[in-house]
Nucleic acid binder design. Structure first.
Lengths: 252, 252
DNA sequence: CAGTGGTCTAGACCACCGG
DNA sequence: CGGTGGTCTAGACCACTGT
C-alpha cells in the first residue's frame, strides 16, 4: 500500500481513501494481517488522522476491518453466515448448540417489549405480572456473535418449579425447558439496525454504540404471545441468513 | 477511609449527549419537528461541534433523527416495517405493487454475483454469457425505501423477444414477465449491513456511504440459480419483517 | 512501560437548500 | 443570498493492550 496522490475532485477525501485502502486490502493483505497504525497511515496519505479514521470506520462497518483499542487494525475475515431462519418453528434452545443460556432474572421488560407481550391482554398493561428475562449468548469458534434477551411471562411456563433455589443458568435452562412443552404455532421476526447498549457491547467484545443487527422475534402459542426475544448480532461480523443460504457470499 | 470510588468509568461525552438528546426527543419534540442547528446545540451543551455531531450520528443511525444538508435536523418518524418474507415463494414483480421497474441493461454482474449465478455451472465462469441487470425501486407514500439490482441470466428467460427495440423500463418488465413463467422452487436470503454505493445513495435520497441493509436473494428453479437480487434498504428508515410481524415495534 | 485506537477541541472551508 | 449540515485540519489527552 504505497502513497497515493489524492485528486482534487468533488469526491470527499475519506471516500476516496476508503476505495484505495479497500483495494489494497484485496490485493496486498491477508486476513488477520495488521495494518500500519492510524498516525502512520494518515501521514502516508497526507491527510489528518480524523479523515483517515472516517475511511477506516466505513471499512469496519462493512466488515472488512477490525479495530481494537490498544492492539491495532487488522484485516477481518469474511462475515459469518448465521442462520436465523424461522422455518424450523422451534422454541429457543431446542436443539441449538450455538446458544448458551447464561442467566435468568425476573426483571421487568422494557416498555416496547411489554407492548408486544400484552398486546392481546387487558389494556391495564399488566406490568405487575412477573416476567422471566433469560440471557443467552451465541458464539461460534469462540467468537461471540450475538447477545439475546428472552422475555418469558411466568404465565407461559406454569409448570416451572420456583420453590427450590434455582438461580442463574440453571433457572434459565429450566425456563427454556418448560417453554418447549408448549405448542409453538408461529413466529414473527423483524430485523433492524441498532447500536449496542453497554451490556451487550461488553459481551460482544465491542465498544458501546457499535452497530448491531437487532432481531426481534415473537413466539406465538395458543393465539397469544408466549415469549419475545431481542437478539443483537454484531453487524460487522455477521450476515443473517434465512433458509439454506449459508454459502451466500456478497460484499456490499 | 482510603480509596473512594469516583467515576471509575467516565462515560464518553457523546454517549451521554446521545442519551440526553434521545430523552428530549421523547418528551419535548414531535415527529417532523426541526431541532436547533448543530452550532447552537453544541454551544448549548458546552461541547465542540464534532462531539455533538457524534451524538447526532448515532441517533440518526438508530432512526430517531433525520439530517439533510442545507435544511436541518428533524425528528424522524418510527421506522417503516417492510415485508421481505420469503414464505410466499414468488418471483420478483409478481403482484408486488411497491416495486417499480425503472431500467434494464445487459451489463456484466459483479464478481460476487457471478459466483452465485455460475456456482453450479462449468468453472470457466461463463463471464461471456449475457446477463440482464434489472433495476427496481421500492417506495411507500412517496418515500424511497430500497433500490434493487436483479441479475437474470439470459438463459433463464429464453422466451424473451429481444429482436424488437425493447429498452429501459419496457425491457425490465419483459424480463420480469418471462421470469414468472418458470417454476420457482425456492429462495435463499441473507441480510447484512453495508454502505450505500453512490448510485444507490442518490436514489435513496441519502449521501454515499449511508448505512443500508443489504438483502441478497437467490431464486432457484430447475435446481439452478435462475436469478440473483441485491436489494439495499435504507437502514435508518426501514425495519425488515419476516412473516406477519408488520406491527412489531421495538427500539434498539 | 510504550504503542494502539478512542475521544475531544476550536477552528476553517465547502456543498447544498430555500427564500 | 444566508443558513444548514458535510468535510477537514492539527493538534491534545485518555483508555486500553500487550510485554
Amino acid at each position: 500500500m504505497g502513497t497515493t496522490q489524492l485528486e482534487s475532485v468533488p469526491e470527499p477525501k475519506y471516500w476516496h481513501l476508503k476505495t484505495v485502502i479497500g483495494e489494497a486490502l484485496d490485493s496486498e493483505f491477508q486476513v488477520g494481517e495488521i495494518l500500519p497504525n492510524e498516525r502512520e497511515l494518515a501521514a502516508r496519505f497526507g491527510v489528518a488522522r480524523a479523515t483517515l479514521r472516517q475511511a477506516l470506520e466505513q471499512l469496519e462497518l462493512e466488515g472488512r476491518l477490525q479495530r481494537r483499542r490498544g492492539v491495532g487494525t487488522t484485516v477481518a475475515p469474511p462475515r459469518v453466515g448465521v442462520d436465523v431462519s424461522t422455518a424450523r418453528h422451534r422454541w429457543p434452545g431446542a436443539g441449538e448448540e450455538s446458544w448458551q443460556a447464561v442467566d435468568c432474572v425476573t426483571a421487568p421488560p422494557p416498555a416496547a417489549v411489554l407492548r408486544l407481550l400484552e398486546a392481546d391482554d387487558a389494556p391495564d398493561g399488566g406490568a405487575d405480572r412477573p416476567v422471566y428475562a433469560v440471557r443467552r449468548l451465541r458464539a461460534t469458534h469462540g467468537q461471540a456473535l450475538a447477545a439475546e434477551q428472552l422475555y418469558v411471562p411466568a404465565a407461559s411456563v406454569p409448570g416451572l418449579v420456583t420453590s427450590q433455589s434455582l438461580t442463574g443458568p440453571a433457572l434459565a435452562r429450566g425456563v427454556l425447558r418448560e417453554l418447549e412443552r408448549l405448542p409453538l404455532e408461529g413466529q414473527d421476526r423483524a430485523v433492524e439496525l441498532g447500536s449496542a447498549r453497554a451490556d451487550d457491547a461488553r459481551e460482544l467484545d465491542r465498544l458501546p454504540g457499535a452497530p448491531v443487527l437487532v432481531v426481534t422475534t415473537r413466539y406465538l402459542s395458543g393465539g397469544r404471545t408466549a415469549a419475545v426475544s431481542l437478539a443483537t448480532y454484531r453487524a460487522d461480523t455477521c450476515r443473517l441468513t434465512f433458509g439454506d443460504a449459508g454459502d451466500l457470499q456478497i460484499a456490499s
